[in-house]
Amino acid sequence: MDRVLRSVPDGYDWAIEARGLVKIFGDNRAVDGVNLNVRAGTIYGVLGPNGAGKTTTIKMLATLLRPDGGSARIFGHDVVKEAQIVRQLIGVTGQYASVDETLSAMENLVIFSRLLGLGRKEARRKASELLEEFGLTEAAKRPLKHFSGGMRRRLDLAASLIAQPPLIFLDEPTTGLDPRTRAQMWDTIRRLVKTGSTVLLTTQYLDEADQLADRIAVIDRGRVIAEGTADELKASVGTSSLQLRVQNQGDIETARQMVERMLKVRAIVSPEAGKITAPIADADRVADLLITLREAGIRLAEMSVQKPTLDEVFLTITGHGVEDDAKKASHAPDGVEAM
């Protein structure tokens, strides 16, 4: 906590306050009025499918992109007017490796340290310290070309921690990592927060947000469509969900209508899997539903009841699957009222 208090205005509660952030590329509203409030000392997860606007949002918060609308403050400092101050408060690990490929890990860290104002000796010491901490000491002298994806990611994170910034942005920190390396990265992130840092991370992995984040914002097509703790988000979907697979693909639409009529909720169809998913608000109605399906001659291939995962949350709120292409889902309802 010590260092946060030293570098941040006393008692400042909010690491990030973003109001109506907008970024437009051509006629594409990549970020379309995003509001975020991130409390200091917490992990905040931004969850969304490809192209949702996660990276663009982070770039605006990290002073890499100028917002076209709205405003954002980092520990009370405006990202546009006080960009240079904001840069002293943040560390950024971009989605794509933001380290120098031709140089070695050691050289990368020394250069970043020197840029941040450390002396020659101090920079070397800091670099070795970080390499040690991230288990890269052995590979310190090798050019990054020969680094594995996981090593690169760790070096990238290490480089963001040189100045011990009170706020760290991690854009998809575990994408492309194997499960073991991912677990290590999670540990590292948790330890960071224990030392007083605030972390904003983006992810497409719903379990990652579930595991790590104190609060989660779900964004889709440039808008925040849900916000809350993982539990709140799950609760909003109902206690459990019903999954049905019909034997005959042709019946799937009729079956969906029946599910919606009987359970009085919105059901989601994922055509690839031939699966219907619907929240169970009232378990008693499921029996009626099954009887109705049988009477209509719709044969089931599989039926299961699942505790809600964030996947379902996502599905329910956005009205389309995570893998769904944005275009394919263009007919989907707005979904906000589902909250």
Partner: peptide
């Protein structure tokens, strides 16, 4: 994280301009 907290990086003086 066993990083010492007293390196110069943590003694940030917030300024909006570079000398």
């Amino acid at each position: 994280m066993n990083r010492p907290l007293s390196t110069s990086g943590s003694q940030l003086q917030l300024k909006n301009r570079m000398s």
